[in-house]
């Protein structure tokens, strides 16, 4: 059964909730959530070209480097924060997650899985993984902190983040049986809904 990432996230986001999307890019996800869920959405993005694309869609964005922290958003009463495919690009992913759970009760995180079998196969053959989820070569990638599904879940345990929901996807963004049985080997991407104690 094919499930799009936005559909999964859609299901986790209540109607009319106040949402902040870290690393919102061109704003496609926010736009979809606004259209389907009537959310109050804000994006955080560092690249002014992408912000211009968000402006064209009528979205609200704040230009900011996530690594600089975002304590000043804490009093904005966000219900949910989202970090889609960006966590591995940050200098301090664990601090960003802590901060996100401080400003909203729930937090959606998606990340590429370095434990995915094709990544392992690339390494076995002595080269850096290049897969649909990790498309850039080692010298071009923005990724600083890649991890496996197991690594990420260990971090959540150590930090006391509660994993409310999780879904594992293969490169076609399908939920395959193999990916759900052995995600660390067969999922190319993990999608998490986190809460804090």
């Amino acid at each position: 059964m094919s499930i799009s990432l936005t559909n999964i996230i859609n299901d986790w986001i209540p109607n009319q909730s106040k949402v902040i999307d870290f690393g919102c890019g061109d704003g496609s996800l926010l736009k979809e959530l606004i259209d389907t869920k009537k959310i109050h959405g804000y994006g955080v993005e560092i690249d002014s070209k992408k912000i211009q694309e968000c402006i064209a869609k009528g979205l609200s964005v704040i230009q900011q480097d996530i690594d600089d922290g975002f304590e000043e958003f804490e009093s904005s009463n966000f219900d949910i924060s989202i970090m889609a495919s960006s966590i591995q690009c940050l200098k301090d992913p664990h601090l960003a997650l802590r901060r996100m759970l401080k400003l909203s009760n729930k937090c959606v995180v998606t990340l590429p899985n370095l434990g995915y079998w094709r990544c392992r196969a690339d390494l076995v053959f002595g080269k850096m993984p290049v897969t649909p989820n990790l498309p850039s070569s080692w010298y071009e990638t923005d990724n600083l902190h890649l991890c496996t599904i197991n690594d990420f879940e260990k971090l959540c345990e150590d930090e006391g983040f509660i994993i409310d929901k999780k879904i594992f996807l293969n490169p076609d963004r399908d939920q395959s049986l193999l990916a759900s049985i052995s995600p660390n080997l067969f999922a190319s991407e993990g999608v998490y809904l986190l809460g804090s104690k």
């Binding site: 106040k18 109050h40 804000y42 002014s48 070209k49 912000i51 211009q52 968000c54 402006i55 009528g58 979205l59 609200s60 964005v61 704040i62 230009q63 000043e72 958003f73 009093s75 904005s76 009463n77």
Partner: peptide
């Protein structure tokens, strides 16, 4: 930040401008 708290639709951009405060007067691509 105040707009975000108040649920106002707002976007904030910081642009490179060489002319200091006067930068807002001048055309630039971005």
């Amino acid at each position: 930040l105040a707009g975000m708290k108040a649920n106002v639709s707002c976007t904030y951009v910081i642009l490179p401008g060489e002319q200091g405060h006067d930068s807002f007067l001048f055309s630039a691509d971005k």
